[in-house]
């Protein structure tokens, strides 16, 4: 069984402790979100898990066969067309150019891009379109594990919901595993099986919340009810320094 296991992880930048004693296990087909305020070390944790930062203390066991990363910003290569941007990960895996283009085209259409967009450069796309491209680029390689670094944070609610629904479909049909970081509790409730609440200074997991209904069956009402319930939770109030009126 593929899994990602984080054991006793600590991390510091200089003398500043960013993460302290982080432990969790992410199993195949599950979605874990790490929720916490901005600047709380969430991105650092994600980068450590994805191997983009070197681990200093603790242990990370990653047995997933493949992974992909979608960033907060789209991070597209400006000199490549939309199609070539999406195909980037496939080319890296050694897929032939022709096959890569077919796969990239299919997934682009699935993510709401049009054929005429594929030849465009990123500068000619809107912010939302670019984020679609970024998602398509991450998912076209059919990763076993997907790392998401607040990719919805700059989108309007309509687009946010649309892309989240795409993702939920993907989770259900491809048995996709996701490690997701966000500061938006509602987003976390909608997408994840387990929510880890990360407080800042230093980043520590203070609460673990499990949601049992499969994502695809979760209704808006259920999400809203859960949200209201969580907003009353003392740990959440403390972590986000919420002011109660």
């Amino acid at each position: 069984m593929e899994r990602l296991e984080v054991k006793g992880l600590n991390h510091s930048f200089g003398f500043f402790r960013v993460l302290e004693d982080i432990n969790f296990t992410l199993e195949k087909g599950k979605v874990i979100s790490i929720v916490g305020p901005s600047g709380g070390g969430k991105t650092t944790l994600l980068h450590l898990c994805a191997g983009l930062l070197d681990l200093t203390e603790g242990e990370i066991v990653n047995t997933f066969k493949s992974s992909a990363f979608a960033f907060q910003e789209p991070r597209l290569l400006p000199w490549k067309s939309v199609l070539d941007n999406i195909a980037l990960g496939l080319i890296a895996k050694g897929v032939s150019k022709k096959e890569a283009e077919i796969k990239a085209t299919n997934i682009a259409l699935e993510f709401g891009l049009e054929l005429k967009d594929l030849e465009k450069f990123p500068k000619d796309l809107s912010g939302g379109m670019r984020q679609r491209v970024s998602f398509a680029r991450a998912l076209v390689v059919e990763p076993s594990l997907l790392f998401l670094d607040e990719p919805f944070s700059a989108l309007d609610i309509g687009l946010k919901k649309e892309l989240q629904n795409h993702l939920i479909d993907y989770i259900a049909h491809h048995n996709l595993t996701i490690l997701f970081i966000t500061h938006d509790i509602m987003e976390a409730i909608r997408l994840s099986d387990k929510i880890l609440l990360l407080k800042s200074d230093p980043g520590e997991i203070v609460k673990r919340i499990t949601i049992d209904t499969p994502q695809i069956e979760r209704t808006d009402k259920e999400v809203f009810d859960r949200m209201i319930e969580l907003l009353k939770d003392q740990d959440i109030i403390n972590t986000f320094e919420l002011e109660i009126k």
Partner: peptide, 16 residues
Amino acid sequence: GELKEMVDSFGLSLWQ
């Protein structure tokens, strides 16, 4: 640096 990180995350070879 952001683009470098992105290419690293997709595991491109040095030549790529």
